[in-house]
Simulated assay, not measured.
Amino acid sequence: MKVEINAETTALLEIDNNIDALVKQIELLSYVNPVNIEEEKERFFSSKYLKAPVFKYPDINFDKFKLHRKLFTQPIERIEDPLIKDLYEDIIYAYSGLIQCIETIGDGKKFYYNCLHCFGTPTEKDVENAKFILHFEDEDKQAAKFQPKYSAEESEVFFKRFSENFAFNYEIKHSDKISAIAMVLNNIKTLVLNTNHTFSDNEIAVLTNHEIGVHMVTTMNGLLHPLKIFSHGFPNNEETQEGLAVFAEYMSNNLTVNRLKELAYRVIAVDSLAKGYTFSRTFRMLHNQYDLDREAAFYITVRAHRGGGFTKDYLYLTGLKKVYDYYHEDKDLSLLLTGKVTLEYADEIKALISKGLAVPSKHITSAYSENKNTNKKVDFILRSLK
């Protein structure tokens, strides 16, 4: 559908372009990942888990105050449609919150409280769900598919082969400065692989479906709309995006109890922030109380405590449950692949498509074409989550 150019549309496109120019610099994950993880891990282990890591973070390369000011001077009162006007008001508040997160990285309580504002923290129900998952026995971790085999360089071939299913190109980079084993940087269309990690066959299957099948798909779909909001992200889109990505693992028959327990440990780690736990105490809880090996316990603790308390990690599990239920209500998953969108804004997405201000998804997650999951235990767990 062609966009009807009138005064309101002109104003909306202008505001959208202005916001896009401002928020291109705001990729929170580019700033919150410590640059000295491995060095601090060795120091922490040498101290017998007593001396908390002292992390260093990338320099911030934008004027924080100027960004705030320009965001709040956008004339959104010129948008007549109340649904779309409210959406853009939410966008401005959301991005202001992310700027506050970035400007307080490394500043203990300030960063943590800003994260609470942006991402929230696990509820009692979320923690109960996590503990429910942890009651299940692991799959055999000695099975061949779980054994480390491939370096980051060797893993590239699998991502490239998987990406032949899609009509888009992206860059692959390697880094030893990320806490995840792989991640997509939306603003530069890049997959980053962690050179400190050796990948198993299961991890390759999980990550191709998760990072390329969803995160890169929504990155590329987001660039196709007249409105840039689909590319730079709807408010609170992280829960939906991570839920979609883990759901692709489920649909492709690669979601295991082990993986669900990893997501549950993340909820427990983030909940420890609310309880006031230090880095060392969170680590010891995961390592001693939950019997996680020290490498896994360390990286989960880093993910939760980086920046001063990064609460986003609990959203993987809540997002998965929401997307799982959405799918089983026979709702349209392709609507959620239109970009970096949020499930709760489904009506707004439909309205924008009907006005010609957005387009249906061009790239579709290949795992979503057929439910190949055969793991009945995983299905039972997902159905049972509250």
Rank of each mutant, 00 (worst) to 15 (best):
A248D: 10
K160A: 13
S200H: 07
A269Q: 04
L273M: 06
T240F: 11
E164H: 08
M183I: 14
N221M: 11
F168C: 07
A274Y: 08
V246K: 03
A205L: 10
H197S: 03
S175N: 05
A269D: 02
E154H: 09
Q289E: 15
N187E: 08
Y290Q: 09
G213V: 10
K160L: 13
S200A: 09
P235F: 09
F158G: 14
V257I: 10
A269E: 01
V270L: 02
N258T: 02
T256G: 11
A245Q: 06
S272Y: 02
L273C: 08
L224P: 03
E262T: 07
M285W: 09
E154N: 00
S163M: 04
N254Y: 12
E164V: 06
K173N: 11
F162I: 01
V206E: 15
T195E: 14
D201E: 14
L227I: 07
F158H: 09
V270P: 06
E262I: 10
S280I: 06
N202H: 11
I212M: 10
E211T: 01
A167N: 11
K173T: 13
L185R: 12
T195S: 15
V192A: 01
G233K: 01
F166E: 03
N186I: 05
R259I: 00
V214R: 01
A180W: 14
H210F: 06
H225D: 08
K261G: 08
K261T: 06
S179R: 05
L185M: 13
E242N: 15
V206D: 08
F168V: 10
K173S: 15
D176L: 00
I229T: 15
G233D: 03
L227F: 06
E249R: 07
T256V: 09
I229L: 15
V192N: 04
S280C: 11
F199A: 05
E171C: 00
S155C: 12
L286E: 13
A274M: 11
S175M: 04
R259T: 14
H215P: 13
L273E: 08
N236I: 14
F230Q: 03
P235K: 13
K228F: 05
M183N: 13
N202D: 08
A180I: 01
Q289N: 13
H225Y: 10
E171A: 04
H287P: 01
E238P: 00
